[in-house]
Design a protein around this nucleic acid. Structure first.
Length: 344
DNA sequence: TTCACTATGATTAGCCCG
DNA sequence: CGGGCTAATCATAGTGAA
């Protein structure tokens, strides 16, 4: 799952032919979970002008897996990665764990960072099982421990002692500045949730890097379902000036996080935040496009709640309560294309 | 009311192998 | 080609303490 190519490998593809209807302006970038129920990506692709999705696992960019599909109309040649390159193995990311890491735990990468973490009961069950067993432990004990460690992304922090990642460790893995989600009224639970729902910044930045030469004076972006601002952080770290960002995000805590980051990084552009995508109708978009002279980029990862395999309760597909917001991404993107096409 | 904590499988895709 | 196996997975809902 390497998409059209990785930073240090030979590209599988350097050019592609996009359908006429897919061409910009604006450029757009859509994201969601790769392992969605059958047929979901076919539907998404059909709405987004029949562009073939680019499936990438972020384990090639950082120390944690993140299998995602991206549909975009960006050029794909001359991409470049963010520097410095982030740690790409568990030991590089968390050197202190090496001391306690059993040889029979052969993981080099973590699994997908999700919204919930393991219970204290589980880590205690693991400690107890290992303390009561031989050295090395029996096959059954090892199997139990390894399975739980993989399922819950546990790391070794002591003798027989595993623990879930801390929020600041997840921020690092995902490419955000330390304490990005800390403060601003965000509880620990909310931090895990917001981070679990986020982009992996290095992966997204690699795809967006082609914009740097194309927009030397900066870009104006419409950011839908912004979350904690993964796309904004990616562009900023690429050194692309943000002239204006219209950010749409339902969570007040997340809006605060992005607003706070905007202040921390001394942005000179304009940040407008909107709570609900439903507020973005034709009139509102015409007004915004008139104000900013159009959007260069429309970014969005629509809710995956009803697509994710972790959802035992309501994995209802693209028509599910939350994931159906994909259709608002399409609606808004298509409106922007039409309005901008009319004015040019 | 908020927050921390806990338990709760099914659906895929990719293998190998007959 | 299909059955059996391994493996991964941006979560929801309930409870109880503060």
């Amino acid at each position: 799952m390497i998409g059209f190519g990785l930073p240090n490998g030979r590209p599988l593809l350097t050019h592609r032919k996009l359908p006429e209807a897919a061409m910009g302006p604006p450029y757009f970038y859509y994201e969601n979970v790769a392992l969605a129920p059958r047929g979901v990506w076919d539907t998404i692709s059909r709405f987004l002008y029949d562009i073939e999705p680019e499936f990438v696992d972020s384990k090639f960019f950082c120390a944690a897996a993140r299998k995602r599909g991206y549909i975009h109309n960006l050029p794909i040649h001359n991409r470049f990665p963010l520097l410095p390159l982030p740690p790409r193995t568990i030991f590089e990311a968390f050197p202190m764990t090496k001391k306690w890491w059993p040889s029979w735990d052969t993981r080099t990468h973590l699994n997908c960072l999700q919204t919930c973490t393991a219970s204290a009961k589980l880590t205690e069950r693991i400690r107890s099982a290992l303390a009561d067993s031989d050295d090395p432990p029996s096959h059954n004990t090892r199997q139990f421990v390894i399975n739980e460690c993989r399922k819950w992304n546990l790391v070794w922090v002591g003798l027989h002692k595993v623990a879930p990642l801390e929020p600041d460790e997840i921020e690092m893995l995902l490419g955000f500045p330390r304490n990005h989600t800390r403060g601003g009224g965000s509880s620990r639970t909310e931090r895990y949730k917001s981070l679990g729902n986020s982009f992996q910044v290095d992966t997204v930045a690699y795809h967006l890097s082609v914009l740097k030469d194309m927009f030397p004076n900066g870009i104006t972006m419409l950011s839908l379902f912004s979350g904690i601002g993964g796309a904004e952080v990616a562009l900023h770290r690429l050194g692309i000036h943000l002239k204006a960002v219209v950010s749409v995000e339902i969570s007040e805590v997340n809006r605060n996080i992005v607003r706070s980051w905007w202040e921390q990084t001394n942005q000179t552009g304009t940040l407008i935040d909107i709570a609900d995508v439903q507020q973005l109708n034709g009139d509102k978009l015409e007004q915004l496009i008139h104000t900013f002279g159009g959007f260069d980029l429309v970014v969005g990862g629509s809710p995956c709640n009803n697509l994710s395999g972790s959802n035992r309760v309501s994995r209802d597909g693209l028509e599910g309560k939350h994931s159906a917001l994909f259709y608002d991404y399409f609606r808004i993107l298509d409106l922007v294309k039409n309005i901008m096409g009319k004015e040019s």
